[in-house]
Simulated scan of single mutants.
Amino acid sequence: MDELLAALKRARTLEARGTVEVTVLFPPRDTPTRAAAALPRVPFRPALLARNFEVRRVGEETIARRPATRYELTPKVGQAARWTLWIDTQWNIPLAYQEDFQDGTVARRAAFLKVNARPAAVRVALPSAPEGLRRALLAALPGLRLPAGTQPVAVRGRPNGGLEVSLTDGLNVFALVVSPRGVRAAPGIASRRVGGGYVWLVGNLPQAALDSALAGVSRVEPAALGTFLKADASNP
């Protein structure tokens, strides 16, 4: 566990470059596979990851002709996605990752096909969750049941009205949306009408788990999040 967490922290200052094949099957899209010069960033939060996931070091494999250590991450509770990470054994940074549905099928995968001779310096900032945001969110949406292991880390206003709260368990990210409009039914989306508006929850969870999270929401009190909305607007 400590070795993996150290690699994820190091990835905030150093990343591999080259040719990456990125395949995204959730949410569905017309062209699921594309090329990139670096791994698309996942906002890993090591402390939450350590709390919510069992980590197993599987062994050594090869990614883009470089030796890498494979780690498998399984949620300790709940039904969130499982992940596999491949960490370069020399540079100690990710070379590939894969997110799987609970049934083991692939939701998305990104892996280097070719790696440049040297990694590149980067600077990735990941703001801490504002103190009191969880309490304010539960006051704003009485009856909300946050998915297992998740905590709110950011809130922002939406251009067409309403607000969006980002939730994470350290690996998986969910969007909790309060909106004057509903949303079309689709895999990975739960929507509930509350008063004169709607609450959505979007993410890689079984549909029953998404629906259950919103089932008890009795009203919406967006004023409870006002302070956090102002803070977010001043720090885009």
Rank of each mutant, 00 (worst) to 15 (best):
L49A: 12
E54H: 12
R82S: 09
R56Y: 07
W83D: 04
R56I: 11
T62N: 02
E60L: 06
N52T: 10
G59H: 00
W86Q: 08
L48H: 13
A81C: 13
W86I: 08
T84L: 06
Q90M: 12
Y71K: 01
W91M: 15
W86N: 07
R51A: 15
L48Q: 12
T62F: 07
V77G: 11
Y71W: 14
V58G: 01
L85M: 12
N92V: 14
I93R: 01
R57C: 05
N52S: 08
R65A: 09
G78Q: 08
W86D: 09
Q90V: 14
A68S: 10
A64I: 04
R70Y: 03
A68P: 02
V58S: 05
A80V: 08
T62K: 10
A68L: 03
P67L: 00
Q79M: 13
R82G: 07
T62R: 10
T74W: 07
G59M: 06
Q90A: 15
D88S: 09
L48E: 10
W86C: 10
R66N: 06
L73K: 09
E61S: 05
R56L: 10
T89C: 08
V77Q: 11
W83H: 12
T62M: 10
A81F: 10
L48A: 13
A81M: 11
L49W: 15
R65Y: 09
L49P: 03
L48D: 14
Y71S: 03
E61R: 04
R66F: 06
R56Q: 11
L85Y: 07
G59N: 00
A80L: 11
I63S: 00
A64M: 08
P94F: 02
K76V: 13
R57V: 08
I87G: 06
R82I: 01
V58I: 07
R56E: 15
L85T: 08
A80S: 15
V77T: 14
G59K: 03
T62L: 07
T84P: 03
A81E: 03
E61L: 08
E72M: 10
A81Y: 10
N52D: 09
E72P: 03
E61T: 13
I63M: 02
I87Q: 01
